[in-house]
Computed example of a mutant assay.
Amino acid sequence: MDDIIIAHEIMQEHEIERYFEIWRESVMRSRLTITAVFLKIANTTEPNTNHQVTSFLQSKLRKTDLLFQLSDGNHWGIFFLQSSDVEARAFLKRIFAILKAERKLQHIALNASITEIRNNNVMFEDLLVKNKEMLAGDEQLTWTITEVKDYSEQPTELVKVSIIEQNAIFRQVLESGLNRLDIPHFTLEVKNYEDGYSFLQSDSYKTGHLHLVIMNDILPRKNGLEILHIMRNMPNEKKFIIYMLSERNSEGAALNAYEGGVDEYIVKPFNLRLLEAKIKRTFARFWL
């Protein structure tokens, strides 16, 4: 490892901020998890140590990981895209073990902090300040790994829910059940309509939110299949999750519904808890 002191140029703090702003928004749009690791040398006066640390880190990172140096020259940052704090901790334990075992690097001791980012309530400057504060503790301690938990809470996404059903009692039963439904990471905003025409007049289906539509196939003033055709030909059609309810228990009716674009075809009568279980499973897949 004679070439360990040869460090290639790495990005600097001022260069990395614009990338971070893009990634931060991807946390919401694409549910991208970012984990930031910050490192600081603990107690060493050996020459060339900064170059050695830089080169060592460069040799251990994947092509998708981004290494940069802070403006004070005493800290390094690494952004791990689509990686959790568990993976970041495993990486740190691995490089700590290598540094302790490598004879030519035994004068180097590091401390590290980890921040898992699962929401966009974080500014780049605040991220740096919090982690530098975590690493500014007792200088006599070495090989420590601390964590910043301020940004690890996952965001909650609003989902529009429209129930389109002519039977008033059944409509109210569905609405009450869905209002009680607890789905991790999602908040449901439930509205009901007695026919297809009133649903289309509401314009609620034109938003960019995820939209769960639970509708009967037979409806006055625009039936379910007509509504299905309208929604599946809209620019935002991928935002719709469409459950069709029907009293027709035939393969032909189900086939027509699925070919038209429904996500679930449910024959009446049915167990309400089964419907709720299907909805939970649908949104669990959306979060993956």
Rank of each mutant, 00 (worst) to 15 (best):
T146D: 10
H75N: 14
H211K: 09
G260W: 02
T35L: 05
A277M: 14
I114V: 13
T282C: 10
N121R: 14
E116T: 08
I218A: 07
R221P: 03
V161H: 03
L66N: 10
L127Y: 06
K104R: 12
E125K: 08
N249D: 15
G224Y: 00
I163N: 02
I98A: 06
G261F: 02
N50T: 14
I145Q: 07
E147T: 15
T44S: 15
L228A: 04
I78G: 02
S83G: 03
L128C: 10
D85M: 03
N48R: 13
K239P: 02
I108G: 09
K278P: 03
T35V: 04
E116G: 06
H14F: 08
F79T: 09
E189W: 02
F170R: 06
N249M: 04
N233M: 07
S246F: 03
A112H: 02
T64C: 11
Y19Q: 04
R31C: 01
A253E: 11
S162R: 10
A90W: 05
S55M: 04
S84I: 07
F270T: 12
E17G: 05
Q140M: 10
I114T: 00
T54Y: 01
K100W: 00
E259A: 05
L181Y: 05
T156V: 15
L32R: 13
E264L: 11
Q82N: 14
T144F: 12
E21S: 15
A97V: 03
K40I: 08
M234T: 10
R232A: 05
E139H: 12
V27R: 04
Y205L: 05
I163F: 00
E17L: 06
F186W: 08
K149E: 11
T54E: 04
K100I: 12
T44P: 05
Q154G: 06
R180T: 03
V173H: 03
R171M: 02
D195T: 02
D203E: 15
Y243Q: 05
L272G: 00
F286V: 11
E102S: 15
Y243E: 04
Q172M: 09
I95H: 06
F124T: 04
E9F: 13
K191M: 07
I78E: 01
D263A: 03
L158S: 14
K60G: 03
I230Y: 07
L181W: 06
S250L: 04
M215D: 01
E125Q: 08
T282I: 13
E147Q: 15
E102L: 11
E17N: 07
N111G: 06
R248W: 01
E194P: 00
K132E: 13
I108H: 03
E157Q: 12
E276L: 14
Y193K: 05
G252S: 14
F186Y: 15
D150R: 07
D150H: 08
V173P: 01
T44L: 07
N43G: 06
R118L: 10
P269K: 07
F270P: 12
L67N: 02
I22Y: 08
H14T: 06
E9V: 07
G252F: 13
D72N: 11
K93G: 08
N119M: 01
I4T: 10
V53T: 05
L245A: 02
Y243C: 06
L210Y: 12
I22G: 01
M231C: 08
P184R: 04
G208I: 08
T115F: 02
N119F: 08
A109V: 05
Y265R: 00
I169T: 12
D126H: 01
E153K: 14
D72C: 03
I164C: 03
E189F: 09
K93P: 01
